[in-house]
Design a protein around this nucleic acid. Structure first.
Length: 497
RNA sequence: CGGGAUGUAGCGCAGUCCGGUAGCGCACUCGGCUGGGGGUCGAGUGGUCGCAGGUUCAAAUCCUGUCAUCCCGACCA
């Protein structure tokens, strides 16, 4: 195989300004752009195609674990939100509120204004999450242990009025799924919450090729209204952590707030046990930042809208026709294998332009065909992850592409695992902690005394937070790096998105 | 909500200090030569300079007000 040097893309290098690189990449790869509405993005067809593949993969896994989809309203009466105390406290500061239902022409005739006569009796909140409206509904759905468990998911948009937004990573409106389940016992609800964390981890690693660490959140980082929050945490190439998904054990908090009781076999009335779990378009951010490079996006084959692009190289339309005659059966053969192929025979762009464009868009495999290949019975095959090019006999092309689909998926995952392994650092002292945080970044594994005060102090002094208490952390006697108090296991710190 | 900045062509910017014909790069349109890594030459299209007032013979430029956006902080999937 050979590796060629490329003309520099019009893309900021990661090493120059990681944040700028990300912002430019999202726009230049045609994934999304800012809209006329502050903090809200337009997801463009190419970006949305990736999201649709994520949805399809996740939805299948949800259904395999017994969940059904439903849909609940966008608007939530204000009074619902206040029924669960810690929940309202967590979300009140970032809610969009509907106060009126009508507009009218303004006095000067130049525009429209809110009609003051059309004030709502009770304001409506645009959902920041749907626990309240869903639990208000569940009260009607659940009477008996026979109605349980109730396993529902919804695909929806939600709004959280964020101060500072970034495409995919934090937008005022975002797309997500939220699962809301009800169970007869505490153990069953906890098992559900853990199961969904595992589903998320599996999806992230198998489909997105993004390795994650499973764990639980500390009390202060927990979801508003949850007794336990399970999470998956990924590490980005700039050494910052990204919370990729959360699954919450809600105890009986919402059942009590919305009076959802069921009759047990013995005929007693008991409150049901709840979970909720979600992942959002933020996963797009994780996907982009984990794999991509200075040449653009790098997509895992399993989520790439276009897995193989074929670029003809020709002089004159007559030659293009000869190439097309050769390529059409190949396209059919690849599609037969379930591979999504694009044959880009646009005469309006040059091959070099196309090469760059598809690299920017992260298409995993590119096949180039010119007269030379027709003469030799070959194709030039380039893989996006390593940028290696290889000349492959026509007879082997289909199996070569099938191999690359597997190999690229595996290779980028492995690369991400290696990066993460190299960026988990164990420290003993707070000084060591601070210097690693500043100079190297990544996850820092350290002893912590378990107190909110210490956690808060570290956050204030270093901006690092406890990302999670890893599920598989081994028990290890130690002393908190800050207070010196005893600790029984290490937790993971990082600066986070 | 505190601190800083910016609004000029689809995008990115210069011009503003010191008032006097609206500019540049990319993109776009047409044509020629090209075609194995963002080709090239030529000819074009496109802007009431964020908005509203004011000063002046004359305002992108000076003054007043206003709106919007971005960046840095406190909050967050």
């Amino acid at each position: 195989m050979c590796q060629t040097t490329f003309m520099a893309k019009n893309l900021t290098k990661r090493s120059d300004d990681y944040s700028k690189w990300y912002n430019e990449l999202v726009v230049k790869a045609d994934l999304a752009e800012n809209s006329g509405v502050r903090g809200c993005m337009v997801i463009k067809p190419y970006g949305f195609a990736i999201w649709e593949k994520m949805q399809a993969g996740l939805d299948k896994m949800f259904k395999e674990t017994g969940h059904e989809n439903a849909y609940f309203p966008l608007f939530i009466p204000k009074s619902y939100l206040s029924k669960e105390a810690s929940h309202v406290e967590g979300f009140a500061k970032e809610c969009a509120v509907v106060t009126h239902y009508r507009l009218k022409n303004s006095e000067d005739g130049k525009g429209i204004v809110v009609d003051p006569d059309a004030k709502l009796e009770e304001e409506l909140i645009v959902r920041p999450t749907s626990e309240t409206i869903i639990w208000d509904t569940y009260r009607k759905w659940i009477q008996s242990y026979r109605d349980l468990p109730l396993l529902i998911n919804q695909w929806a948009n939600v709004v959280r009025w964020e101060m500072r937004t970034r495409l995919f990573l934090r937008t005022a409106e975002f797309l997500w799924q939220e699962g809301h389940t009800a169970h007869a016992t505490e153990d069953e609800a906890i098992a559900e919450a853990k199961q969904m964390m595992n589903v998320y981890a599996e999806f992230s690693e198998e489909h997105m090729a993004v390795p994650v660490i499973k764990g639980t959140k500390t009390e202060t980082e927990r979801f508003a209204g949850a007794l336990e929050t399970y999470c998956i945490e990924a590490l980005m190439q700039d050494g910052k952590a990204l919370q990729a998904g959360t699954s919450h054990f809600l105890g009986q908090n919402f059942a009590k707030a919305f009076d959802v009781k069921f009759a047990t076999k013995e005929g007693n009335k008991e409150y049901v046990w709840a979970t909720s779990w979600g992942v959002s378009t933020r996963l797009m951010g994780a996907l982009i930042m984990t794999h991509s490079d200075d040449n653009g996006l790098v997509l895992p084959p399993k989520l790439a809208p276009i897995q193989v692009v074929i670029v003809p190289i020709y002089k004159g339309l007559e030659q293009l026709q000869m190439i097309s005659d050769k390529i059409n059966p190949l396209v059919a053969a690849l599609r037969e294998k379930g591979i999504s192929v694009k044959y880009d025979d646009r005469d309006t762009q040059k091959p070099g332009f196309k090469f760059n464009e598809y690299e920017l868009k992260g298409v995993p495999v590119r096949i180039a065909v010119g007269q030379r290949d027709l003469d030799n019975g070959t194709y030039e095959v380039a893989r996006r992850d390593t940028l290696e090019k290889e000349v492959v006999p026509a007879t082997e092309i289909v199996s070569k592409v099938e191999f690359l689909m597997e190999d690229i998926q595996r290779t980028i995952y492995q690369k991400a695992v290696e990066y993460r392994s190299a960026h988990i650092t164990e420290v003993q002292t707070y000084d060591e902690f601070k210097s690693i945080l500043e100079e190297k970044g990544g996850f820092i594994s350290a002893h912590w005394d378990g107190s909110n005060e210490t956690e808060e102090r570290i956050k204030n002094e270093t901006k690092a937070t406890i990302r999670c208490i890893p599920i598989d952390a081994k028990l290890e006697e130690g002393r908190c790096m800050v207070s010196g108090k005893p600790s029984s296991r290490r937790v993971l710190f990082a600066k986070a998105y």
